[in-house]
Design a protein around this nucleic acid. Structure first.
Lengths: 112, 112
DNA sequence: TGCAATACATAGTTATGCAATGTATTTAGT
DNA sequence: ACTAAATACATTGCATAACTATGTATTGCA
């Protein structure tokens, strides 16, 4: 009945959260874009469109939170690998703190 | 250093989440708008601007998730009280399920 | 008298997710 | 050999929502 409302809401909820997710994943090791999409799909069940991720990675790069490097493959299309920067790690720490407080707050509200 | 990035990110993260918070609060009892702002501020440390909440309540009403009623006061300005509808309760259940899965997924990523 | 708090509301700005579309290479199936 | 799907990147335009700024109006306090 309210499927449309819920669908729109789910899109809105992803705003900002996807940056948090991507930075946390890149905090473990380097990834290329297409790989990130699969990783997010597998580990979180979050659907992320290509038209969402690539601009997102560009924004992270422009904010100096990640750097990128083209890597030629033995066969196939070259991949652009992304690495988190020192700045990215520092910022991520603050995002994670904010996120933790936020979710704890909401937990209190939903379970009373 | 990246205060600007973090500040923008915090705004983006609130998108959708504020609707979840408001619906959960209204699921306990009726509130008027101004009261909701204080309630959210006190219980969650989430800052919500008036220019955010009032349009949000209008959207919830237009989606038939809440209804509103003007209530005259013995003294002072009349208050517009909001009540969650049956439709709102059903929708809220689904939002809470999605939210729970989402936060659990992110928890896995941030703590590895 | 004037300022802060209460209580509602809207217009314009800004940012992001997403569908649609595009390019190019490789692989698997028939 | 041909075709479709998968891989891998990217951009344009639309819809949506948070926020700043601004506005109206009442009440209480210094």
């Amino acid at each position: 009945m309210n499927e449309e409302f819920i669908h729109k809401w789910e899109s809105q909820v992803k705003k900002g959260i996807l940056e948090l997710v991507v930075l946390n994943i890149l905090n473990n090791r380097d990834y290329y874009g297409y790989e990130l999409i699969e990783e997010i799909r597998n580990y979180t069940l979050i659907e992320i469109a290509e038209g969402t991720l690539y601009p997102l990675l560009i924004r992270l790069k422009e904010s100096n939170l990640v750097i990128s490097e083209w890597v030629e493959q033995d066969s196939g299309i070259p991949r652009k690998y992304y690495s988190i920067t020192l700045d990215g790690k520092k910022t991520l720490k603050e995002l994670n703190i904010y996120w933790e407080n936020l979710t704890r707050s909401i937990q209190k509200i939903t379970t009373r």
